[in-house]
Design a protein around this nucleic acid. Structure first.
Lengths: 339, 339
DNA sequence: GACTGTTTCGGAAGCGTTTCCGTTGCCGAA
DNA sequence: TTCGGCAACGGAAACGCTTCCGAAACAGTC
């Protein structure tokens, strides 16, 4: 019997399970009003026939799409990719499909927010690792879908993130505790994000820590660069050209810190004997390069956001803001200052 | 007249333009068989009513889904994420949506090919950065959609990749040229991939290069580890415990190479004076750590795969296999052996 | 035993397109 | 004048689901 190969639909499943389409639909969607035995039978048949509902038809008829959009910048960078990885894993476990929207640069970003609302392609959107501007918020509202954020800072949506200020403070306090008083900061800004939404907790903490330690701020010790390691290297070079260079460097991220390390090494300086370096994130290469840093649980943030979304989608209550803890990881790039 | 606010559909447009739905549809889709004047009228009306076709309905009725599935392991690793980034950018520019399927581990992988969660949801699937087993190929066929591969090795589908053997050979030849004769290899295997599909070009080249140089193989100098940097560190430790340690180390990837570097540094050895280290990939951190390596254009591979797919989807001819070139990047981790 | 309430389930009406088949109208050729 | 051919267009059947509404079955209550 070489028939088949025809595309099977819900009617086939219903027939095979000996129920009506209505019941089949309810069973497949885990809807209310289906006897447990019936549901199981339908599910079994569906599995057997390796049937999947057509999202188009489902959506057309008024159901959910089973899709969620994930908006994320800079996928190729560890932090963002890892966040995505965590999120994807829980979403997919829940049988939701992930629509990936990579937005690098203001332009992309604008484009995304401008056109997504037109098409109702998803049940929800997750904004990963960047703050959402006001205009953009308005566009999102317009879609009328669930929204969740993660990895960025305080968002107007259910959100999971770290406390940047605390994390930064942990780094600074470690340096201070070691006895450093001349501490430089290499701040990183994302050139692809509008200035107004740049989170600044990591900078604030620098000043706060210094103030609390009674150390006057020397603005020469503060460098601001675009994200990315090579920029960190340049900044370090500038710092080394000061009459009185720092004994320790606090970088906004491990990548930037690594850039600084390169410059220091090339200058023949030893780490940590001559200069201490600390980063934030606990990027995998931090472990490989013996870099002291402040760890943030990245994958977990993605996972938590995913679970949060699931709960909301199910109509359950959920906390609005989740802040995950960070932790100082001491490796070989920090030590007390010489003398 | 506060009527309206009802969602307008193609029927409304057709009516307003004084044509049938059939004609409206054809006009909107730029199909054949519509008088120019009519088409313009329909388009004008649609614009006026700010009407957009419902993608769901459109697809239900027989159009393409406008989506493509991307299957990729280890997103959080630079190589995979970058490939994805390149692919996504061209796909999205072509107005295709990307459905992300992350498969880490045999299990995930099996699950994906077994359940084929993407079936009926996409027009094509792109397999990123891993070889597809025979059984898996059979499952994929089952979806009856276009398939393209990238970043893995020789695939039975249209494919873009580097020539692993050539790349590895470039690394080895560099070491050989510098005068090294005692060269170790730290080979990396992916524990998440079935053995049968592990590409081995990077290993083959080691033996071939040695043979061509007339250097006998010392199996003690070959270490095989799982992907990931810390494993590279362990392997290096083993290598250093040999009676006659290598003067140079060729690692299958930059990450593994970095692991080796850490061990060497901890042992107080200088790079490259005491030991040379070379990797493959040109991972961003290679630049930050002054690591000599063989660059492969990763983002481009993703982009090329995307364009290839686009061409196929449009029914155009396209080359079946694209091999992109690799290139030696000399930095500070390699030098002639001492004395 | 009649009645009410609760589950479980089926019929069938959409949802908004595309596309298969025709039909109509017009032009030039015979 | 008739007719074949062709471009332009219309009717209506899918497409595959969700959900409203009502029927049936059954349990519990007085």
């Amino acid at each position: 019997m070489a028939q088949s190969s025809r595309k099977i639909n819900m009617a086939d499943v219903a027939r095979a399970a000996g129920v009506s389409m209505a019941t089949a639909s309810r069973a497949l969607n885990n809807d209310y009003g289906v006897a447990e035995a019936t549901r199981r039978r339908v599910l079994a048949v569906a599995e057997e026939l390796s049937y999947v509902v057509s999202p188009e038809a489902s959506r057309l008829a008024g159901g959910a799409t089973g899709r969620v959009a994930v908006v994320v910048p800079h996928i190729s960078r560890w932090f963002f990719a890892t966040l995505l990885e965590g999120l994807e894993s829980v979403l997919r476990a829940a049988d939701l499909d992930v629509l990936l929207y990579h937005v690098d640069g203001i332009e992309d970003r604008h484009d995304f927010f401008h056109r997504l609302p037109a098409r109702r392609k998803v049940d929800a959107v997750v904004v990963l690792a960047f703050p959402v501007g006001e205009e953009e918020q308005r566009r999102l509202e317009l879609m009328g879908v669930t929204i969740v954020a993660a990895g960025g800072q305080h968002a107007p949506y259910p959100n999971v993130c770290i406390d940047d200020e605390t994390a930064a403070r942990q780094a600074m306090d470690h340096l201070l505790f070691l006895g450093h008083r001349r501490i430089a900061m290499i701040a990183a800004v994302d050139p692809d994000q509008p200035d107004e939404v740049q989170p600044s907790g990591r900078s604030n903490a620098y000043y706060a820590a210094l103030r609390d330690a009674g150390i006057p701020v020397d603005e020469q010790l503060v460098e601001t660069v675009n994200w990315g390691g090579t920029k960190g290297a340049d900044a370090m070079a500038k710092l080394l050209s000061l009459r009185e260079p720092p004994t320790a460097v606090y970088a906004h991220s491990d990548e930037v810190a690594l850039g600084a390390v390169r410059t220091l090494r090339r200058a023949g300086l030893r780490i940590p004997e001559d200069v201490s370096v600390i980063g934030i994130d606990d990027h995998p290469v931090a472990e490989l390069t013996d870099l002291t840093t402040v760890r943030q649980p990245v994958r977990e943030q993605g996972e938590l956001a995913g679970r949060m979304l699931l709960r909301i989608l199910r109509g359950e209550e959920t906390e609005h803001d989740v802040v995950v803890p960070t932790q100082l990881v001491i490796r070989g790039s920090t030590a007390p200052p010489r003398s």
